[in-house]
């Protein structure tokens, strides 16, 4: 039972990291994806506080030749931006359901 759960956890973990990586093969591409995703979140007014910080840190790491670090940072920015846009789209459709009574 425990083993089975462990397997499921591992399977989902590897699955999510795969799906989040998108099609980006390297840090440059990840960075571009992150920038585009964040611009889309900002365009609807839902950008998160730290996303652009991750993106600029990724840019610096890339300039320093630290590919792996740049990739990780860009991915964090990308993940946040995707979630922010999803949040915004949900709110724009449904905000009236969130009015406290």
């Amino acid at each position: 039972m425990k083993n089975l759960k462990g397997l499921v956890v591992i399977a989902t973990l590897s699955f999510t990291s795969l799906s989040f990586a998108g099609d980006a093969l390297n840090a440059e591409e990840m960075l571009i994806d992150a920038e585009e995703a964040n611009a889309a979140a900002a365009a609807i007014g839902f950008e998160w506080r730290d996303t652009s910080k991750f993106i600029s840190e990724a840019r610096i790491a890339l300039a320093d030749g630290k590919q792996e670090e740049a990739y990780q940072l860009a991915q964090r920015g990308y993940d946040q931006a995707v979630l922010a846009k999803k949040q915004g789209e949900l709110m724009m459709e449904n905000w009236e359901k969130y009015i406290p009574m």
């Binding site: 425990k2 083993n3 462990g6 397997l7």
Partner: peptide, 9 residues
């Protein structure tokens, strides 16, 4: 393998 699977739990 068994250790890695159980360890997180």
């Amino acid at each position: 393998l068994g250790f890695f699977i159980i360890a997180p739990l």
